[in-house]
Write a protein that binds this DNA or RNA. Sequence first.
RNA 1: GGGCCGUUAGCUCAAUUGGCAGAGCAGGGGACUCUUAAUCCCAAGGUUGUAGGUUCGAUUCCUACACGGCCCA
Length: 494
Amino acid sequence: MAEVPEEPTGESREEELVAARRAKADAMRSAGTDPFPHSFENVEPVEAVIAQHEGLNDGDETDSKHRIAGRLAARRGQGGAVFIDMFDRTGRIQLLAQTDHVGEEAFAAIGDLDLGDLIGVDGTAMKTKRGQFSLKVEEIFLLAKALRPPPDKHHGLKDIETRYRRRELDLIASEESRELFLTRAKVISTIRAFLDRDGFVEVETPVLQPLYGGAAARPFTTHHNALDRNFYLRIATELYLKRLIVGGLERVYELGKDFRNEGISPKHNPEFTMLEWYEAYSDYMVIASRLEDLVREVSRAVGYEGEIDFESPWRRETLQSSIHTRCGIDILANRDRDSLAAAMKEKGLEVPETDTWPQLVDELLTKHVEPELQQPTILFDYPVELSPFAKSHRSQEGLVERFEAYAAGMEISNAFSELNDPDEQRRRFEAQRADADAGDDEAQPYDEAFIRALEQGMPPTGGIGIGIDRLVMLLTGSKTIREVVLFPAMREEQ
RNA sequence: GGGCCGUUAGCUCAAUUGGCAGAGCAGGGGACUCUUAAUCCCAAGGUUGUAGGUUCGAUUCCUACACGGCCCA
């Protein structure tokens, strides 16, 4: 081959755009201006500036000076004038720069700004003849050069994959996305305020645990070099929090990440945010009403106006009746595997051959009940086989005092009267060990440290876990958890 | 894990019974002092996800793979 091929130009177009922007930054440096200055003090939120001038009439100009900062979103040149749209976290505002007012040199510099640049502005409040509130520019400062172009100014960023992988672009392009994550933050701060007000203590327990437990899930495993031992990333905070109840903290909560090494779906991210709280001298009924109060308060705080009714008392059913109503099958009258399987077949339902009795109950619940629970519903009283940490029911043999709360066809919460009898807890662990030996890889490992803590004496206690990502999904009408997690787990980008 | 759908310019999208891949926005040059998806003129921008196959010719048809989405397990 005589010809030497040109250099590959795979990203040439984008690199050209970057080069043009970098050249502008370099030109500024040559002229003695830093395209990445250190600070810009005394900035007002755009929302506040707009709010101060609601009474202006079309064409009014004022002497009211304001300093704002944000990202340059759009520009409309008009000869000796230019209109610029910029936005900060609180809102979007139009700037009007006129060559007569700022001078030719500054006007030319404004012309060199690119969409996406971070700018600071000093200007005066005005309303255009067409009635658009604006800031009349005195001076514009480049606060940071954007070397890469932003997403389309009108269509935004539509590609779902890019929105998740490069969330910063999504946040730049989409006010809805920014609002969603501000709502998420509001949910979390409201929860903290609610629990703090009711005398709960926020605590932090280990994320790296010698033994995992508190939920039916497979863990992530990691290794500590100095100790030369393996740790698990927690799948729940439950067992440590109950040890704090033993210790006398009486009301504790933890809000943080749990990790479950399982499939990814619209309802599952491998790391997710969980709230757990435990309160001494109470039981699952007390917990249920506090859950209703909390969710109602949170929905009000974020201004929820969707289809789900968080104001009324939640529907309450037993697990048994919820299945009986929808499938015509009484799980407690069919207390063994073969009997329940026969009842399901009689109703024409599919029966997975290898499923155990608890798995069949879970199948009925997941497939036939859960999707029906659109309005907030609490299902009470679960079979003991499904609930190794819940206290036996005070009046019903074979059941435990446990409830799960559902809304929009999704489990959002799981709560118990906590099992505090150490000998009973030991028997439950032994049953789990038998399940594990039989091949159940979600069975609870035997936790001697937890048993020993219970032997110290734990007061009667109610406790709960709430999936915060799912709660945010409900409150924002999001169909997938990836919409409410800033950086959802993805396969490696190729 | 299985099925279906998608992947084209920086962004948003077209197009082809298999025959030189097109727009808008953004970017470059120019005009314009009340625009707001501003407008107008000029020029430029592509390994059509990756690797193979069929074909005179593949972005289009076939196979595998990658990533994503939806549904099922």
